[in-house]
Amino acid sequence: MEIIEKLNNKLLDQSSRKCKLDIEEYKQRALMYAEMEGAISVLSDMQSDKSYVYKPKTAWELGLNMQENPSEINSIWEEEIIKKIHPDDRLKKYIHELRFYELMDSMDAEIRADYSVLSKIRMEDKNNEYRFVKHRMFYIYSPDNGKLRFALCLYQIAMDQTLPSVSDFMIINMAKGEVIVKDKLNYQNILSKRELEILKYVGEGYASKEIAGFLSISINTVSRHRQNILEKLKVKNSVQAFKDSFY
């Protein structure tokens, strides 16, 4: 999947100067979130390309495997959780994480800790029905090499399940209590039927040649639609994030 490759290139630490932050300390912090908030807590280590998943009863409600708790994954991607996210929301989540990374990368190191991602996404539960889940993400940077070391993701079943079926994606300044970036990203309102079809295939990781075959159109037509998608979905100061997502 193209967008995963782009994220891996940006997120995984390639620095020769290793971060000395204590992984055990941050694993304890992740465990505390799971125990205190009832949130599935995922600590991803960019230096070792591993994740540690802590599962409270929320995980059982979402139909996740509770046999290994906590579980250790040889990837920064919590695939068991990600595959339960609605396909549309999964693509938006990846795009938003790229935008968050770009924003953090442009900031001075001393203020990065003030920011986090707050999203509401749809996830399949144990009954194979979609429910709204509150997703939060925090970045922890290394004081040794200035690189992103940890990402902490929290998944918590939302209290309010009555909202319209549109997912919220926000970047917030926690210190000021301000929303910095807010996107509904409701593609249904701004893309044509054909563009929605192509976006769906892009989100599933298909290349333009494959999409052209599926839809019986030329590669040039697919490329034109993909460019139109980028132009229609652009937001201030984050066009490059969308380009990184699709190319």
Rank of each mutant, 00 (worst) to 15 (best):
E129P: 00
Y130S: 01
R131V: 14
F132D: 04
V133H: 04
V133Q: 04
H135V: 10
R136K: 11
R136L: 04
R136D: 00
R136F: 00
M137F: 01
M137V: 11
F138R: 14
F138A: 08
Y139N: 10
Y139T: 02
Y139H: 14
I140F: 12
I140N: 09
Y141M: 12
Y141T: 10
Y141E: 11
S142W: 08
S142P: 04
D144L: 02
N145M: 08
N145G: 05
G146Q: 06
G146Y: 07
G146T: 06
K147M: 12
L148I: 09
R149H: 10
R149G: 01
F150G: 06
F150S: 06
L152H: 10
C153G: 05
C153A: 14
L154S: 09
Q156H: 14
Q156F: 10
A158V: 03
A158R: 02
D160I: 06
D160H: 02
Q161C: 03
Q161G: 02
T162H: 12
T162Y: 12
L163M: 11
L163S: 10
L163K: 15
L163P: 05
P164T: 08
P164H: 06
S165L: 12
V166L: 10
S167W: 02
F169D: 04
I172S: 00
M174R: 15
M174A: 15
A175F: 05
A175W: 02
K176D: 10
K182G: 13
D183F: 00
K184E: 13
L185E: 01
N186T: 10
N186H: 13
Y187T: 12
Q188N: 13
Q188R: 15
Q188E: 15
N189D: 15
N189G: 08
L191D: 06
L191S: 06
S192N: 03
S192E: 06
S192R: 04
K193A: 13
R194H: 09
R194L: 13
L196H: 06
L196G: 06
L196F: 04
I198A: 09
Y201K: 09
V202L: 14
G203R: 04
E204L: 11
E204S: 07
G205F: 02
